[in-house]
Design a protein around this nucleic acid. Structure first.
Lengths: 158, 158
DNA sequence: AAAACAAAGGTCAAGTAAAGTCAAAATATC
DNA sequence: GATATTTTGACTTTACTTGACCTTTGTTTT
């Protein structure tokens, strides 16, 4: 018997497919469709639609809120390159490693220098000063991945 | 269902644009146009047209009253605009406020869209997920400021 | 004038509609 | 049997909407 999570995963993937790479849902609606509690949608998103797997999840709370899931298309060299990097990157990222990565991205023309400069600023120890040192490199990695995904995915087509 | 607040925001922005930087409205009239209670106009103004976001809101009560929303010095350079924002910004920043700022920056050609996109990605709740919620908005603000500074410093004023 | 009235905008708290969190319970897998 | 994954649900936080009541200003009446 199929696991509910798998069904939900499949459903979302179909939505993305139909919509050329971008699904926009309402958590509670989708939950109702498959007859589960809303938080299970959250669970599926957090386990099967990560940056490392090539997805970008954005959301807004409050009245009229939504969740948007987009997938990297992998059709350009930049996308390939970044997807590859994303997979190779692991869980943590030091400031030093950040700089190495960014330099490479610029050298290989994956992202423009000005963009890299701003990323570097946001990912610096200075910016992350308030984050516990034990956690910092994890947060930095999350940010790096999300930034990269956002950069190559651009604005939602619509 | 699109949020009413977003519609109102857009409407006001268009009015400002049409009028070269200054919109003058009557709260109750605008409210009637979009079919909401007057106080919702106030809500939109207070969440999306603050001084820090580059607007100046003045008003007059009583018979013949009005509300005037002006964009701060339409003619300032990107650097000045950002400097102003930086100065007005305070210590904390929510995801929603982040988006309002970035949208403004892009709409008013202060920073290019791709840059705004990566900033948005890095500053999102998804990216900052591991940071304690009590700390999150502080960290987000630190990052925002750092990135904006990098942006200004990186673009040498001619 | 002064008082009364009308016509604005301002405030604030309650109501509603979403998504997020977290940990216990249930189920699968090894 | 132990460990990992999934399912559930009670509770939290965020964002938007509504409405009742307040204050200010201009106009009309006495």
């Amino acid at each position: 018997m199929a696991r509910l999570s798998d069904v939900i995963e499949q459903l979302i993937k179909e939505l993305i497919e139909e919509n050329h790479g971008c699904a926009e849902i309402t958590r509670s609606e989708l939950a109702e469709q498959v007859n589960c509690v809303p938080s299970q949608i959250t669970y599926v998103l957090s386990t099967r639609f990560t940056n490392g797997q090539g997805y970008l999840v954005e959301s807004r709370r409050g009245g009229g809120g939504w969740i948007r899931i987009r997938r990297i298309s992998n059709s350009t060299t930049a996308e390939h390159y970044i997807m590859h990097a994303l997979n190779a990157m692991g869980e943590q990222l030091s400031q030093q490693q950040t700089e190495v990565y960014l330099k490479n991205f610029v050298d290989y023309d994956v992202i423009p220098r000005p963009v890299a400069r701003i990323m570097k600023g946001g990912l610096s120890d200075q910016a992350l000063n308030r984050v516990d040192t034990g956690l910092r490199d994890f947060v930095r990695m999350d940010m790096m991945k999300n930034m990269l995904m956002c950069f190559i995915l651009g604005s939602p087509s619509k």
